[in-house]
Amino acid sequence: MTRVILTLFLSASIVLAGCGPRGVITVLPGAKTGADTSAVQTVFIATDRRVEGAGPAALIEQRFGEARDPQLRYGRIDISIPPTHVPGQIEWPGNRPPDPAQHFVARSGTRYTNQTAFLNDIPRGTSGSVVLFVHGFNVNNAEAIYRLAQIAHDYETETPVISFSWPSAGDARGYVYDRDSVIFARDDLETLLLGLARDGRRTVILAHSMGGQLVMETLRQMSISGKGDALRPIAGVALISPDIDEDVFLRQANRISPFPEPFMLMVSTRDKALGLAALITGKPSRLGSIQDPSRLAGLPIEIIDLSDIEGGDRAGHSTAFTAPAAIRLLQELGPT
Results as ranks from 00 to 15, higher is better:
F64M: 02
T269Y: 01
E310Q: 15
P123K: 03
D188I: 02
S38H: 06
F44V: 00
A54L: 02
G75Y: 00
R22D: 12
A323C: 08
L276Y: 07
R111W: 01
R270H: 13
A39L: 03
A235K: 07
A54C: 04
F9A: 10
G109Q: 01
Y175K: 02
R251I: 14
I244L: 14
L239Q: 06
V248Y: 07
A101F: 02
P335E: 15
K32A: 15
T26G: 01
V130Y: 05
P21M: 06
T2C: 03
P87C: 03
S294E: 14
N138Y: 09
F164L: 02
I280W: 10
V27N: 10
T113L: 14
A320G: 14
R124G: 10
L250M: 14
T33G: 15
D187F: 05
N141I: 05
L148K: 04
V237I: 15
Y155E: 12
D188A: 13
I60N: 05
D36I: 06
V215H: 09
L132A: 00
V86G: 04
L72K: 07
P167R: 04
D308W: 06
Q89Y: 04
A17F: 00
P100D: 10
W92H: 12
G88P: 01
D305S: 09
I183T: 15
F104W: 02
L28E: 10
L231S: 06
G75H: 04
R147E: 00
G282Y: 09
E302P: 04
K283C: 07
